[in-house]
Nucleic acid binder design. Structure first.
Lengths: 151, 151
DNA sequence: TGACGATCGATGCAAATGCATCTATATAGA
DNA sequence: TCTATATAGATGCATTTGCATCGATCGTCA
């Protein structure tokens, strides 16, 4: 646990598992969405944040902070969401550069349908494999790997 | 932990952390490689497997099994590695469809230089943040999320 | 041996990503 | 006020990914 330039075997193993398992789980969840002809996970992430934000909406840069997507990625994702009618872009009064993104009714509906599938994936892939105690332990350990440490 | 269609709050939280942390860590590791003008992580994964396989090399489909990359992805990645002289493709005697991929000296050297950076990232991002005991706990919990359960 | 389905690996094409840069507005400082 | 710098968001271009499919060989079974 001390600052070193060479990782310990335990660190390498944990890293390898983290990489492998997270890729597997993402792939499974994406496949489940595809099988239901639903949009990819990235759309869910954005719709979820916007749904939580409510009628006030969010600025694109706030979405970037919350979702960790790159700026150009959000810009294009929002364009797709808008052209699908899932979000709307509103001019914001006090900043001529920006806009506010608000989820539409159709967007909420899409999010709801995605959650039916996505939530089931989470339940199956994670909830069914670890007890709530173990899940809490896992969350706590992962929490200590966040950057920055808070967030 | 029972089979359910709706995930528990603990499952949702663990999932969210897993998604977020793994993305952050990958991004950090990729950035470190870029900052050293080294190839991306995917190259490391392949070179690592090939280095472990030794002079016998590996068939592309074996790389697919080990790395979880898609078939077309491996096919193109190997083409890039070959054109960079990091691997060589050998005709295999007993299967006219296939080929054997072997890492070259240059490939080993590249892998070594990548590990100097990648290993340091692992040490900093994971090894420096959790004790070996906690790392083992983390590995064990993640191990129970693998698909299939073994592997 | 001949036919048929399975496996190995490559590839054309469309979509998504990454990078750098651009425009426009906002803010700070002389 | 005028200029310089920073921030918000979009976009052109090259690379990579994803999907479907293809050509070639293998293995099986009649």
């Amino acid at each position: 646990m001390t600052e070193q330039t060479n990782p310990s075997p335990a660190a390498i193993k944990a890293w390898a598992r983290l990489m492998r398992v997270s890729r597997q789980l993402v792939e499974r969840a994406e496949d489940a969405l595809k099988d239901s002809s639903l949009p990819p996970l990235a759309w869910y992430d954005v719709l979820h944040e916007l749904a939580e934000a409510g009628e006030g909406g969010l600025r694109p840069f706030q979405l970037i902070e919350r979702t960790l997507f790159a700026q150009y990625n959000i810009s294009r994702l929002l364009a797709r969401l808008e052209s699908d009618g899932l979000v709307e872009k509103l001019r914001v009064a006090d900043d001529g550069r920006g806009q506010t993104i608000r989820i539409t009714g159709k967007g909420r509906e899409t999010r709801r349908r995605m959650w039916a599938v996505y939530g089931r994936s989470i339940a199956e892939l994670v909830g069914a494999r670890l007890s709530d105690d173990d899940l809490d332990t896992l969350s706590a350990l992962l929490g200590r790997l966040r950057h920055p440490a808070a967030l």
